[in-house]
Computed example of a mutant assay.
Amino acid sequence: MTNTLIFVDLASDDPAKAGEFYAQVFGWRNDARPHGIYHRMVPGGQFKNPDGSDSQIGNLHLGIFDAANARPHPEPAGVEPRALSTNGRKPRVWILIGDDDSADRILGTAQDLGATLLWRDHYWAEFNGYNHAFRDPWGNEIVLWGKAGASPDVPEGFSRE
């Protein structure tokens, strides 16, 4: 097998609070390992087979690390930089909206907890999906993806590309 993506980490200056944020926004388990230093967000469940049954592959996890001392690192005190990146483009994390959830609920909860709405209600024909985005309180950009399905009926008012 070729190189496999197993994890994506987000920076925070308060991993415990960021863990609570993502637990509330997405309903994920906040697995502190150790608390306040590194938090693994566990969505639970398995990737689906084409027939809708669970596969043997568990859903990917998201990590949250302390920007002041990103672990793991061979040096106990870590290395510079020790601050959150606030300027310019950063990586984005794409989250598929579950069939039992909605963009409205996710965006509303995120905003109630201090996130900034970046945009919403956009249809991207190239990948056949509805998307919306927010910036979490630590500056990380999250893009939500909703399945449009076969022959999508794009709602009035959605922008398109």
Rank of each mutant, 00 (worst) to 15 (best):
P34D: 15
P34K: 11
G36D: 06
G36N: 13
G36C: 07
G36W: 07
I37E: 15
Y38R: 01
Y38D: 12
Y38H: 11
M41F: 08
M41L: 15
P43V: 04
P43N: 03
G45F: 10
Q46V: 06
Q46I: 03
F47Q: 10
F47R: 01
K48L: 14
K48H: 07
N49H: 08
N49S: 02
N49K: 09
P50T: 13
D51F: 01
D51E: 07
S53V: 01
S53I: 02
D54Q: 10
D54I: 06
N59V: 07
L60R: 02
L60K: 03
H61L: 05
H61P: 00
H61W: 10
L62H: 03
G63K: 11
G63E: 10
G63P: 04
G63M: 12
I64K: 00
F65M: 11
D66K: 00
D66M: 00
A68D: 01
N69A: 03
N69H: 04
N69T: 06
A70W: 07
H73W: 05
E75I: 07
P76L: 02
A77G: 02
A77I: 02
A77T: 08
G78W: 12
G78D: 15
V79K: 13
V79G: 05
P81F: 00
P81Q: 02
P81C: 02
A83C: 08
A83W: 06
A83N: 14
L84Q: 12
L84M: 07
S85F: 04
S85Q: 14
S85W: 04
S85E: 15
T86K: 14
N87T: 11
G88H: 08
R89Q: 11
R89S: 12
R89L: 14
R89E: 10
K90A: 12
K90F: 03
P91C: 10
P91V: 11
P91W: 11
R92E: 15
V93G: 09
V93A: 12
W94A: 15
W94I: 15
I95V: 14
I95R: 06
L96F: 09
L96C: 08
L96M: 14
I97N: 06
G98T: 03
D99W: 09
D99Q: 15
D101M: 07
D101G: 04
D101C: 08
D101Y: 07
S102R: 07
A103P: 08
A103V: 11
D104S: 12
D104H: 08
D104W: 01
D104E: 15
R105C: 02
I106F: 03
I106E: 04
I106D: 01
G108N: 09
G108M: 04
G108T: 05
G108D: 00
G108A: 13
T109P: 00
A110V: 03
Q111K: 15
Q111M: 08
G114Y: 05
G114E: 12
G114N: 06
G114T: 05
G114F: 04
A115H: 01
L118V: 11
L118P: 00
W119H: 14
W119C: 10
W119S: 13
R120G: 10
R120T: 05
D121P: 01
H122E: 14
H122K: 14
Y123D: 01
Y123H: 05
W124I: 09
A125E: 13
A125M: 03
A125P: 00
E126N: 09
E126R: 02
F127I: 07
G129I: 06
Y130T: 00
Y130F: 12
N131H: 11
